[in-house]
Amino acid sequence: MAPRSHRIVVMSQVCNQTLAKSSETLVGAHVRAHRCNESFIYLLSPLRSMTIEKCRNSTFVLGPVETALHLHGCENLKVIAVCHRLSVSSTIGCTFHIMTPSRPLILSGNQTVTFAPFHTHYPMLEDHMARTGLATVPNYWDDPMVLGGEGTDTRVFQLLPPSEFYVFVTPFEMEGDTAEIPGGLPPAYQKALAHREQRIHNWQKTVKEARLTKEQRKQFQVLVENKFYEWLVSTGHRQQLDSLVPPPAASNQVAKKDLTWSHGALET
């Protein structure tokens, strides 16, 4: 087996699937994802580096990346990671929820890059951050540097408006002590979440005080569920929820440390 510092893991053509993995194979590895489409990929181990190339319409949730996270030739990705450095080139419509002690580098050929605060956690996250030497401060997620053909044109990127911000739930049970987002959220984003929660509370109070009859409550519940289902379908979240249900043959794997129940080509 190659030394851990030299180990390379390649994922190619993972399509229309959910891949979830936390294993020694990934610890300290250089990982490359190539031509992955319409997928949700969770690599919940401390990584040495991560390269994502020519991937589309997918979500990547990564363990801490000790050195560099680089994207090239990607379209419509959501990437959630703690990393030492992020660089992007030739991407279109990608969103980065990151925590990083270095200014993100926007190289040439990018369009509509969005940056947002890191917004998830999993039980081993802080342990993995310690292993990779990454901390919550400093954090330059919102101060990218535009290089390459765009020069100093800041129009190539935007910061996610707080009104569009939601936390991301990593939907797996693991051992570990991390129970909240390390370092918390920037005040504007925390305020937006609190405001949304207050609106939900007010709505629930209004429904309770409406004194609906049993039949009216039943009709109202059906209406809400139908609207929620329509929202799931229109936003693509229905696909994500469906993909989290493991096939029967893999049900025993979910409780193990290796979380994979569906994967494409995975090579070491």
Rank of each mutant, 00 (worst) to 15 (best):
Q239G: 05
M11A: 10
T132F: 05
Y229D: 15
Y42T: 02
H121K: 03
L43F: 06
L160Q: 03
Q219G: 09
P182A: 10
A33D: 00
S89L: 05
L125I: 04
S58G: 08
W231Y: 13
G236C: 02
Q13T: 09
A210W: 07
P161E: 07
S49K: 09
F165P: 00
E53I: 12
Y189C: 08
P186Q: 02
T25K: 07
N16P: 00
C15A: 10
T152C: 07
M99Q: 03
K191C: 08
H119P: 02
L26S: 01
C15H: 12
Q198V: 05
E197I: 09
T91M: 08
Q158I: 13
V27Y: 07
E126H: 04
N202E: 14
K205S: 13
Q111T: 15
I8L: 10
M124R: 15
Q198E: 12
V9C: 03
F118T: 02
L232K: 07
R85Y: 05
W261A: 00
T95S: 13
T154R: 14
S23N: 11
G149I: 10
T114V: 15
H84M: 10
P117Y: 06
V207I: 15
T213P: 02
Q190T: 09
K191Y: 09
A130W: 04
V224F: 03
I200D: 15
L212V: 07
S58C: 12
F115A: 01
N37Q: 11
I41T: 04
F118R: 02
R7M: 09
F115V: 00
V82C: 06
N252S: 11
R131S: 15
R103D: 14
L107K: 14
L77R: 04
K78C: 07
K257W: 10
L44C: 01
A194S: 07
Q158W: 05
L47F: 06
T51R: 14
A179N: 12
Q253R: 03
E209M: 08
L19V: 09
G28E: 05
E215T: 09
P46C: 08
G183Q: 02
V31F: 00
Q190G: 12
L26Q: 01
T136R: 02
K54M: 11
W203I: 08
Q221C: 10
H201F: 12
R211E: 11
H84D: 13
L125N: 00
E180I: 06
M124E: 11
V167I: 14
V254N: 01
K205P: 01
L232Q: 14
R85N: 12
T18A: 04
V113C: 11
T136M: 09
S22I: 01
Q216N: 07
I52Y: 01
L244A: 07
A81S: 14
E126A: 14
M129A: 09
P104F: 02
S251T: 08
S102D: 14
A210E: 10
G63T: 02
Q240K: 14
V146S: 01
S87H: 04
